[in-house]
Amino acid sequence: MLDRFTAEYNQQRPHRSLPHRATPARLYATMPKALPGPSRDAETHDRVRHDTVDKSGTITLRVHGPLRHIGIGRSHSRTHVILLIQDLEVRVVIAVTGELKRDHRHQPGLPTPEMTRSEPTPRVRILQMS
């Protein structure tokens, strides 16, 4: 009887405390899992950041020096996300559901938005002297 209760509780019964009245088994299946990775040396930089998507649908994050704006989508504005950062790779996970929303790799050779922004051409007024 205990096995039957456990199966119903975890796999069939929706829970009010979970997002979208999910079952614990469904929520567990969508969460990112720790996987063995390649051997890493002491030069890697790992961090986890909790943030909220802004009203324009982006996350602002400093990656390898300059600030980067990573687009998530306006439909996700004000959504709580978890950023998993390892060196130049950024993964954006929806905090409530565990859904991987964006897998971004920074390209260090590409120009930053600050480098591509053009300055307005100054207008020169020529005065004639008589």
Rank of each mutant, 00 (worst) to 15 (best):
K101F: 07
L35M: 13
R117P: 00
Y28T: 05
A29T: 06
Q107C: 04
T112P: 04
I85M: 11
R102E: 11
R16H: 06
A29L: 05
D3F: 07
L61R: 04
R125V: 10
L35S: 05
A34L: 15
I85D: 01
R47E: 13
R78H: 12
M129H: 11
N10S: 08
M129A: 03
Q11W: 11
A29I: 00
P113S: 07
P111R: 06
R47A: 12
L18Q: 07
G98W: 03
Q86H: 14
P19H: 06
M1E: 09
H106Y: 15
I82L: 12
P14H: 07
H50G: 01
H15D: 02
V96W: 01
P14R: 11
R21N: 15
H20M: 05
T58D: 13
S77F: 06
Q12Y: 13
K33N: 03
M1Q: 09
I59K: 00
T52Q: 10
R4I: 09
R123A: 10
R78Y: 10
R16L: 06
M129N: 05
D54M: 06
V53M: 03
D46S: 10
R62E: 11
T23Y: 02
H20A: 14
R21K: 13
P113W: 02
T79R: 13
G73Y: 04
M1V: 09
H20P: 00
P66G: 14
A7P: 00
K33W: 02
T60G: 06
G73R: 07
V92P: 00
P19I: 05
P122G: 01
R47S: 14
L2E: 07
T52S: 08
T116L: 14
L88F: 07
H50W: 14
H106W: 12
R105K: 06
R78W: 09
D41W: 04
T97I: 02
K101E: 09
H106K: 00
H104N: 01
K55Q: 13
R47W: 13
D3I: 08
Q11R: 15
L2I: 10
A22I: 00
I94K: 13
R13K: 14
Q86L: 12
D54G: 12
D103T: 07
G57W: 09
G65I: 03
L61G: 01
S75F: 03
H45Y: 12
I85V: 15
L2Q: 08
G109R: 03
G109C: 01
T30H: 07
E119N: 08
R74S: 13
N10Y: 11
L67N: 10
V81T: 01
E89G: 03
S75I: 11
K101C: 07
A7I: 09
T23Q: 05
A34Q: 10
Q107W: 02
P111A: 05
L35G: 01
R102N: 06
Q86R: 15
K55Y: 10
N10M: 09
R16N: 10
R78N: 11
R125D: 05
S77A: 14
V63E: 03
L100P: 01
D46L: 12
R123V: 12
T52Y: 11
M1L: 09
I94S: 09
H45R: 15
I94E: 12
I72E: 04
P14K: 05
D87M: 07
L127E: 13
T44S: 11
I70K: 03
A22F: 00
V48Q: 05
R102M: 03
R21E: 11
E119H: 07
R125A: 11
L110Q: 10
R102Y: 02
V124M: 04
